[in-house]
């Protein structure tokens, strides 16, 4: 029974070691902000942070997390950058259906934490693992630049 650290709290989870973190979050802990889109690390809808690095929860066995700290979209607003990203997303009408946006917000927050003033190339490299079927890429890019302007 792994104990995992999520959003600053320890959770003892009654789950097999190989159960992906995604389903521990969604089904065991009912943190449903992290989304299932492909189950194969192809779409990025399940992006969380593990020790501050973006990671795809759908391919991350919960038993391998150990002491590492998981942050999900439910808590990213607690960081200054996360809050600004979410604010820019709302102000600039970034979401359409919104299903991929949890992952987009997490990827963008990780990018801006590391590179506060990213170039378009930086944005391409950080965000091209996250699919948006509604095609809001130009708005995502613009919103990242907007956040960067304020940093």
């Amino acid at each position: 029974m792994p104990t995992i650290r999520i959003n600053g709290a320890d959770h003892a989870v009654d789950a097999p070691q190989d159960k992906p973190l995604l389903w521990v979050l969604r089904d065991d802990l009912r943190l449903t902000g992290t989304k299932y889109g492909c189950g194969r690390a192809l779409c990025g809808a399940c992006t969380v942070h593990v020790d501050g690095q973006p990671a795809r929860a759908c391919v991350l066995p919960c038993g391998t997390l150990g002491e590492r700290e998981v942050t999900t979209v439910e808590a990213i607003g607690g960081s200054e950058i996360g809050r600004r990203v979410q604010q820019a997303w709302a102000e600039m009408n970034v979401p359409q259906c919104g299903y991929c946006q949890s992952g987009q917000v997490m990827a963008a927050a990780a990018l801006l934490e590391r590179i506060p003033h990213p170039t378009d190339r930086d944005i391409d490299q950080a965000m091209s693992g996250n699919l948006c079927r509604c095609g809001m890429y130009t708005r995502i890019r613009a919103a990242i630049h907007r956040v960067a302007e304020g940093l």
Partner: peptide, 19 residues
């Protein structure tokens, strides 16, 4: 660093995902 290998690739093959 904003999309590291480890974002998807674990210490073992993830067979259910083909990763």
């Amino acid at each position: 660093p904003t999309l590291p290998c480890a974002a998807c690739h674990q210490d073992t093959n993830i067979d259910h995902a083909g990763v």
